[in-house]
Amino acid sequence: MIIKGGQSNLEEARNYILAVLSILIGVLTVYSILRLTRNFSKCHQRARAVRTSLVVLVISAGLGSMHLLGKRTLSGFTAEDSNLFITMALYVLTLAGILYLFLRVRMLLGEREQLKELAYRDTLTGLLNKNGMDHFWDHCKSGEQLAVLYLDLNRFKSINDTLGHHAGDLLLEAVGGSLQQFSRKGKRHIFRVGGDEFVIVAKRCSRKDAEQLALKVLENITRNYKLETHELFVSASVGITMSQGRIDRKRLLQEADSAMYNAKQLGSGRYAVHKQENSLPPVKLVSSSRAQ
């Protein structure tokens, strides 16, 4: 009887230790997930992928360890043991808690991504806005080859003044929808930076490719637009600049903007390339023929 009582006490102690270990593993798993998902949206794309993989590994390891501890605990009981129900209940509750926390973290990450989309997207056109552009520049690799295209609609102010802001918004919405087709995930990013001003940033893009892209954009944008009861012919002008060495966002935008104004002087539906030779301070411009 004494031996039986001693064995019973040892079993209870063992089960108690296993239960404490299971709870500690659960707490450590949750804490690790919260640490890994902190400032998740601000991380670079590669860092987010690494963190996501680590979260999956942590959850898998936590659930796996708790499952093994639960099986170890249950193996010490018989079907007639009075403590079996309590142990199984604790085991199931712990697993349910981890699963709930996992789903909760997943939901919070989803909400965070939705808030990020709202913060980085222009509500009218669906394109990225100035916040999205700042985020792009902040995460852009130094020295990466970029082509920056600055696009501006011609006669937009007169359309706004004559037909009203509602017609102007409809036009911007239509132009934004047309520009969406030129977006390429990880390669081309399109931003609305002003009333009728748009910026396209293309990665690993040569000057020749940038000029071809400008022509395609102009051919698509320069056309008739039906805005409710009005039908208007609208054209655009595009300025192009290329990154040289270390990326300077302010310089690139200023150069592309300057080239765009020179394109306007050449006529509607044209583009101009900003080219600065190292040996010559003046800026040279190369223009295209009118987009058909």
Score class of each variant (00 low, 15 high):
residue 289 S to Y: 15
residue 101 L to H: 06
residue 114 Q to E: 13
residue 262 N to T: 07
residue 178 S to M: 00
residue 60 S to L: 05
residue 21 L to P: 00
residue 266 L to T: 12
residue 23 I to W: 03
residue 172 L to P: 11
residue 4 K to V: 15
residue 87 T to I: 08
residue 113 E to I: 10
residue 287 S to L: 07
residue 109 L to E: 01
residue 94 T to Q: 09
residue 134 D to G: 09
residue 68 L to K: 08
residue 244 Q to N: 02
residue 6 G to D: 14
residue 92 V to C: 02
residue 43 C to Q: 09
residue 115 L to R: 14
residue 282 P to I: 02
residue 153 L to K: 02
residue 121 R to P: 01
residue 193 V to F: 06
residue 88 M to A: 09
residue 266 L to W: 06
residue 198 F to I: 03
residue 254 Q to R: 05
residue 45 Q to F: 09
residue 270 R to Y: 03
residue 80 E to M: 05
residue 111 E to L: 04
residue 164 G to S: 08
residue 291 A to P: 15
residue 207 R to P: 01
residue 119 A to M: 02
residue 142 S to K: 14
residue 67 H to Y: 10
residue 292 Q to I: 10
residue 170 L to G: 11
residue 19 A to G: 14
residue 218 L to N: 06
residue 86 I to R: 14
residue 43 C to G: 02
residue 6 G to Q: 14
residue 181 Q to S: 15
residue 86 I to K: 08
residue 248 D to H: 13
residue 168 G to E: 07
residue 224 N to A: 12
residue 21 L to H: 07
residue 4 K to L: 12
residue 144 E to R: 13
residue 74 L to C: 08
residue 75 S to A: 11
residue 86 I to G: 07
residue 38 R to L: 05
residue 263 A to S: 01
residue 68 L to Q: 03
residue 164 G to Q: 06
residue 200 I to V: 14
residue 122 D to L: 03
residue 35 R to Q: 09
residue 145 Q to K: 06
residue 106 R to I: 01
residue 160 N to G: 13
residue 255 E to I: 02
residue 266 L to H: 14
residue 180 Q to M: 08
residue 23 I to C: 11
residue 96 A to M: 07
residue 18 L to H: 08
residue 221 I to W: 04
residue 292 Q to V: 06
residue 83 N to K: 12
residue 118 L to P: 01
residue 17 I to N: 12
residue 262 N to D: 08
residue 27 V to G: 00
residue 263 A to R: 08
residue 245 G to F: 00
residue 6 G to T: 10
residue 164 G to F: 02
residue 45 Q to A: 15
residue 75 S to Q: 07
residue 80 E to W: 13
residue 214 A to P: 05
residue 156 F to K: 02
residue 285 L to K: 13
residue 52 T to E: 13
residue 255 E to F: 05
residue 237 S to R: 09
residue 92 V to P: 00
residue 154 N to S: 11
residue 87 T to N: 07
residue 45 Q to Y: 15
residue 42 K to G: 09
residue 71 K to L: 14
residue 16 Y to D: 14
residue 286 V to R: 12
residue 111 E to G: 04
residue 151 L to C: 05
residue 128 L to D: 03
residue 10 L to T: 12
residue 168 G to P: 04
residue 270 R to E: 07
residue 272 A to E: 00
residue 141 K to R: 15
residue 53 S to P: 01
residue 145 Q to D: 10
residue 200 I to P: 00
residue 218 L to C: 10
residue 210 A to Q: 07
residue 153 L to I: 04
residue 88 M to R: 07
residue 88 M to T: 04
residue 184 R to S: 12
residue 178 S to T: 08
residue 29 T to E: 06
residue 226 K to R: 12
residue 16 Y to C: 02
residue 266 L to N: 14
residue 88 M to D: 03
residue 80 E to P: 11
residue 254 Q to P: 05
residue 284 K to Y: 11
residue 134 D to N: 11
residue 283 V to L: 02
residue 176 G to Y: 00
residue 142 S to T: 05
residue 67 H to T: 15
residue 145 Q to E: 09
residue 66 M to C: 12
residue 15 N to Q: 10
residue 218 L to Q: 08
residue 61 A to S: 05
residue 172 L to S: 09
